[in-house]
C-alpha cells in the first residue's frame, strides 16, 4: 500500500515534470534527457516561395577553388548537428535570423516582458551559447583536418559561406541565392 502511494505520487509529479520541461524546451532550449519529439516547424511558408539557409564550403589551395559537400564532411555525424556547430562558432550573431516569423513574434513578446538583459542571459546565452576561443580554434582545426583527409590536400584555407536560398514552392526550383555571411578559416 505504501509503495503504491509512492507510485501514485510519481504519476502525479511526472506530468508536472513533462509540462515543465516542454515549457523550458519551447522557450529556452530542449533539455536532455528529453521526452520531446522533433517538430520540424521552423520554415516560413507563404505558399509561393520558401527560404532556407545552408552552408557552402569552398576549399582554396593557392588560387584554385573547389567545393566540399557538408553532408559528406559531417559523416558519421548528421549534417544538422555540424551545421548548428558551424552556426554557433562562426555565425552566432545571425542565430536569431534563422527563426520563422512566428518565432520572432513570440520571442519579441518574451523579450519585452522580461527585458533585454534577462533575455540575453537566460534565453539567448543558453539557446545559442558562446564558444570560447579555444573551442573555436579546436573546431576550426577539426574542420580543416576533415577536409584534408577527404581531399588529401595540405596548406589550404576553407571559405564557409552562409547562403540563403529562395526556392519556388511548387517546383522547388531556385529563384534567388545570396551569400548572407562568410568566414575564411
Amino acid at each position: 500500500m505504501k509503495s503504491n502511494r509512492s507510485k501514485i505520487t510519481l504519476f502525479y509529479l511526472f506530468p508536472l515534470f513533462l509540462i515543465g520541461h516542454l515549457a523550458y524546451g519551447l522557450i529556452v532550449r530542449e533539455p536532455y534527457p528529453s521526452l520531446m519529439m522533433p517538430a520540424f516547424s521552423r520554415i516560413d511558408n507563404d505558399g509561393k516561395e520558401y527560404k532556407l539557409t545552408d552552408f557552402n564550403l569552398i576549399v582554396q589551395v593557392d588560387s584554385k577553388m573547389d567545393t566540399i559537400n557538408l553532408k559528406n564532411l559531417a559523416y558519421p555525424f548528421s549534417k544538422i548537428a555540424i551545421s548548428r556547430a558551424i552556426d554557433l562558432v562562426y555565425f552566432r550573431k545571425d542565430s536569431e535570423k534563422n527563426y520563422n516569423s512566428l518565432q520572432k513574434k513570440y520571442y519579441s513578446i518574451i523579450k519585452s516582458f522580461i527585458g533585454e538583459k534577462y533575455y540575453s542571459k537566460y534565453i539567448i546565452a543558453v539557446r545559442h551559447p558562446k564558444m570560447n576561443e579555444n573551442q573555436k580554434r579546436q573546431f576550426t582545426l577539426w574542420i580543416k583536418k576533415r577536409v584534408s583527409d577527404k581531399k588529401n590536400i595540405y596548406g589550404f584555407s576553407v571559405i564557409i559561406e552562409k547562403v540563403l536560398t529562395t526556392r519556388d514552392f511548387k517546383s522547388g526550383s531556385i529563384k534567388r541565392k545570396e551569400v548572407i555571411n562568410q568566414v575564411k578559416i
Binding site: 529556452v28 533539455p31 528529453s34 555540424i82 564558444m131 573551442q135 580554434r137 573546431f139 577539426w142
Partner: peptide
C-alpha cells in the same frame, strides 16, 4: 570522430 573541443551540451544532464 567528435569535433575536438566542442562541448555544447543541452540543459540538464550535460
Amino acid at each position: 570522430d567528435f569535433p575536438d573541443g566542442f562541448f555544447n551540451p543541452p540543459p540538464l544532464f550535460g
